[in-house]
Write a protein that binds this DNA or RNA. Sequence first.
DNA 1: AACCGCTTTTGACTTTGATCAAAAGAGCAT
DNA 2: ATGCTCTTTTGATCAAAGTCAAAAGCGGTT
Lengths: 244, 244
Amino acid sequence: MLSRSKTVDFLREIPVFSGLEQTALERICMQAHDLDAVKAKLLFVSGDPAEFFYVIKSGWVKLFRETLDGNVAIIDILTTGHMFGETSIFEDGAYPYSAEIVEDAAIIALPLADLKQEIENNQQLALAMLTSMARYRKQQEQEIEHRTMQNAPQRIGCFLLRLTRQNETGPVTIHLPYDKTLLASRLGMQPETFSRALSKLKEATGIRVKGATIELDNLEQLTNYSCAACSSEFPCKDIAASSS
Amino acid sequence: MLSRSKTVDFLREIPVFSGLEQTALERICMQAHDLDAVKAKLLFVSGDPAEFFYVIKSGWVKLFRETLDGNVAIIDILTTGHMFGETSIFEDGAYPYSAEIVEDAAIIALPLADLKQEIENNQQLALAMLTSMARYRKQQEQEIEHRTMQNAPQRIGCFLLRLTRQNETGPVTIHLPYDKTLLASRLGMQPETFSRALSKLKEATGIRVKGATIELDNLEQLTNYSCAACSSEFPCKDIAASSS
DNA sequence: AACCGCTTTTGACTTTGATCAAAAGAGCAT
DNA sequence: ATGCTCTTTTGATCAAAGTCAAAAGCGGTT
């Protein structure tokens, strides 16, 4: 079936699956189904029984939880090539967070049971998962560090840097991937703070902001400003690409 | 050799190793050596070539990094049964953080190469590592949530709760495991803020503080105050026990 | 007891970011 | 173009936490 083999091809591009044998990948994709979802659609909510894990073909998905007193905590915001829901393999069978589409998306849903079985029987996949988890873990460590060591303008600068390919030298144009309110919460600040912090960053580094488009003459402007409060000097390797 | 079999026995108590066959565990412990270290000793610094991973028998160890502008970011503070340095298996062979003894400790050092080889050849261990990584990942997610959603007194209260066994009903006595300055940085705040926040917590919940000893009549006092800003209602399962 | 070095607390002040309220801008349908 | 909605910005104010400085407390020695 054509759509099945396209799914296999897509998954092969993702680090955690890229080393797998064709047959293993096909077993995982056996029950795959595609779904298109528009902005604001809730894929599942925290506590729902976990049947599927998801891989994003395009668009953006927000993972979040709500606190008892009604605030929202963003876990992560994911896009093309990212995977989510797969950690429920190691859990009690419920999703530990809710997932909402924040930019129209094409998504592949795959049964957790099949992934679980393959991991348990396929050493290669288990190791790939371990590597992926380790990378994610490192990313989270860095996230915690950023939240405590960087102030608001620095966090924005750091985020912008991570949107670029890391060895550009000349002028760079960056497009913010989703709206500024969401970006604010991704960076752990209020929308008003984001707006003001972006102005401050503009002041401090000379970047040019036009709506969701940002231009800078070179990355150094930003790295000097943002990476000072960070433990890993710039091209902060490893943190860019990852599957949830 | 007696000390070798004691090491095996100790590792067997740790979740990630508990399901292993005796022979597998013995292979990992083959080159084990014990070390006693006093407060302030640096085990390794970030960037050192990673040869060993460590398991703590007793005492406390701080993992941290330094930012370019000279501040210190605490990664984690670990004690009995915790493991660290093992993620270097998935890295470029250097430790990604520094490790310092903060309370006199007894530690087992084991070669990373042996662990790596065992993981690659032993499906059971790979799966146990995956489970352990998933638990740690969840913990980190919670840590990020705490840092953004809870204020200073709430974070302290939450930390105290996690020092208790979670189903106590009557009065509880808690001993702070290490000094307050370190605890402050573990919770992402300044020592002065910690001191004042603890007073505020005392005010708000009626806990009694005498030096490093804290008494409370029941956990509810604290949970009402601290867990309101959190997404997982109290006994916050999973987060207590873990390896690294 | 007196002293030393350390941790912890307290005080005064500053800075950062949150909050509340309102205005401005952008996108879209009519 | 007009009106509608939603996002973003701006302004004014407030609260939380950081900073700097000094005092108090707490072992452990001598």
